[in-house]
C-alpha cells in the first residue's frame, strides 16, 4: 500500500495542512499516517476478499453496492453537520481513490480475472436454449453435463420488458443476461431440460426462461474411430428376437 502513489500524495498533503484550522485532518495525515494507511490496506483487502467470494458463489453485485454506499453517504451527511469533522470528508473519499491507482488496479484486476477463470459456471437432435440470471449459469451447465450433455455455448445479452414497466423499482431487476445453448439428442431432451430447469430454479419469477427447438441438421467433427464404431453392427440378442 505504501507503493501506491496516491498514498504518497496524501502524506505530502499532510505537510501543508494548518493544525489550527483543521486539527483532525492534521493528526490523521501526520501523527496517525501509518495507522491510516494500515486501515486503508485492510479495507482494500476486505473488499478484494468480498469480491472474490462474490465471484465464487455468483452473488449479485447490487446488494453489495447498496450495503456499502448507503451507509457511506449517510456517514458523509452526518460528518458534514460537524464543523471540525467535516474537514476530513475530502480525505475520507480520497482514500477510496487509492483503489484506482496504478499499483492497486493491476493487482485487483488480475486477481479478478484469475478467480473468474478458475472458479466462475436417431434420430434428429434438439437444441436447448436458456436465458438465465448470471448467478445460475454454472449450476445449470454442471447439471446438464452430469445428465449427459457434452458442452455448452454461452453468450451475453441484455434483457428488457418487465424492468421498463416497473419504473424506479425496475432497478432491482438485473439487466444483464446470459444465454446458454446446448445441443442434445432427442432421447435426452426431457432429462436434460428437467435437470437444467431445477438447477436454474426457473420456476422462480425473474430467473429466466428456457425453450427447446427442433434442429434439421447438425454438423461437427466426429473422430474416425467413433464413426467406425457406430458403423459396426450390434452383436448379441436384440429385444424381440426369438432365435
Amino acid at each position: 500500500m505504501f507503493a501506491e502513489p496516491a498514498i504518497g500524495a496524501l502524506k505530502t498533503a499532510g505537510s501543508i495542512v494548518d493544525v489550527n484550522q483543521a486539527p483532525y485532518l492534521y493528526t490523521l495525515l501526520n501523527d496517525w499516517a501509518d495507522v491510516m494507511v494500515l486501515v486503508i490496506g485492510i479495507g482494500v483487502g476486505f473488499a478484494a476478499v468480498l469480491g472474490t467470494i462474490r465471484f465464487i458463489y455468483g452473488w449479485n453485485l447490487k446488494p453489495f453496492v447498496y450495503l456499502t454506499l448507503l451507509p457511506t453517504l449517510a456517514l458523509t451527511g452526518w460528518l458534514s453537520t460537524h464543523p471540525e469533522l467535516s474537514k476530513i470528508i475530502g480525505l475520507a473519499w480520497d482514500c477510496g481513490a487509492v483503489t484506482t491507482g496504478p499499483v492497486t488496479v493491476p493487482l485487483v484486476l488480475s486477481l479478478g480475472i484469475g478467480i473468474v477463470a478458475s472458479a466462475g459456471k436417431g434420430n434428429s437432435s434438439l437444441s436447448g436454449f436458456g436465458i438465465v440470471m448470471l448467478a445460475s449459469l454454472d449450476d445449470i451447465i454442471k447439471a446438464a453435463q452430469e445428465i449427459g450433455a457434452q458442452g455448452a455455448t454461452i453468450y451475453y445479452a441484455r434483457g428488457g420488458g418487465v424492468r421498463e414497466r416497473l419504473g424506479v423499482l425496475g432497478l432491482a431487476i438485473e439487466v444483464e443476461k446470459e444465454v446458454i445453448s446446448i445441443i442434445v439428442a432427442t432421447n435426452q431432451i426431457d432429462r436434460v431440460f428437467e435437470k437444467m430447469f431445477i438447477a436454474g430454479k426457473l420456476d422462480t419469477p425473474g430467473m429466466g426462461i428456457m425453450y427447446v427447438t427442433h434442429l434439421d441438421k447438425v454438423a461437427t467433427y466426429i473422430p474416425q474411430e467413433i464413426v467406425d464404431k457406430l458403423a459396426k453392427p450390434i452383436v448379441g440378442n436384440v429385444a424381440g428376437n426369438t432365435g
Binding site: K217, V218, Y221
Partner: peptide, 19 residues
C-alpha cells in the same frame, strides 16, 4: 460454410440449421 470454416477437424466447431 462447413467446408469454408473447416469444421471437420478437432475443435473445429459445431453448426446446425432449423426452419
Amino acid at each position: 460454410i462447413y467446408h469454408e470454416a473447416d469444421v471437420n477437424r478437432p475443435h473445429g466447431g459445431l453448426m446446425y440449421i432449423y426452419p
